[in-house]
Amino acid sequence: MSAPPLLEVADLEMRFGGLIAVDQLSLTAAAREITAIIGPNGAGKTTLFNCLTGFYRPTGGRMVLHHPNGALALDRMDGYRIAARANVVRTFQNIRLFPGMTVLENLLVAQHNTLMRASSFSLAGLFGLARFRRAERAALERARDWLARVDLLDVADLAAGTLPYGAQRRLEIARAMCADPVLLCLDEPAAGLNARESSALGALLLEIRAEQAIGILLIEHDMSVVMGVSDHVIVLDHGRKIADGAPAAVRHDAAVIKAYLGEDDDAALPPAVAADLRAGQGGA
């Protein structure tokens, strides 16, 4: 009998008044795997993330995370606790860094809870006790390690808001990794990146998957990234799951093609994505 998957979502439902953004959605995501979630705009992908990370409280269904320390019901936890206790950490579609703080400080803020405990809620820190200094050195080492991986060492002392767009995206991922995730939720990390940056991102994600025992949920419109790195693709449309499987299988699924390209459906698909999808189909 195999271990349960890292994340189990069952019959998740999120309503806003009359609008059903996520409808009876069930899915699983495994550790050491990249699970991509794709779908047209408005399919409920970001809403799913908002439910998973405690920004919304779902109106129905269950979300269970099989954390190394035991199973946790995410639907009963709120706000910051999901990141603090369940270690579900996310990035944002529209990048949310601390723009006035330096790149390095961004990564230290991500280690807040660890450092706070080490500083005995500031007391040990105020008096500069050895225990805290050790913890701080370790935190800096960790930050440095991630800066090197995402190629931001040279700009570590610059304000995060002054970095170019692509670098901000990488920084946000590094910051999430510094927060010690068990499940990492990336919301369109390739949006706005050029082709070279996108492929570097793909390589980074594969590296994380190979080295860390964590699960990755990936919302992405860039099909070259999705098809290149995912182990498993889930397709949403109008809040429902319409396909679920290996990338190659999903790519040829009739329902998916209809959702993206269908004439009777006015799904707002950016032309570039449509082109990517077609290219993926032809080229595979």
Binding site: A83, R85, F98, P99, G100, V109, H112, N113
Partner: peptide
């Protein structure tokens, strides 16, 4: 640092626990 981070972006703070 958390004070300053909170001033910069409260939502990002929550997402970091």
């Amino acid at each position: 640092r958390a004070w300053e981070a909170l001033r910069e972006d409260e939502i990002a703070c929550r997402a970091l626990g």
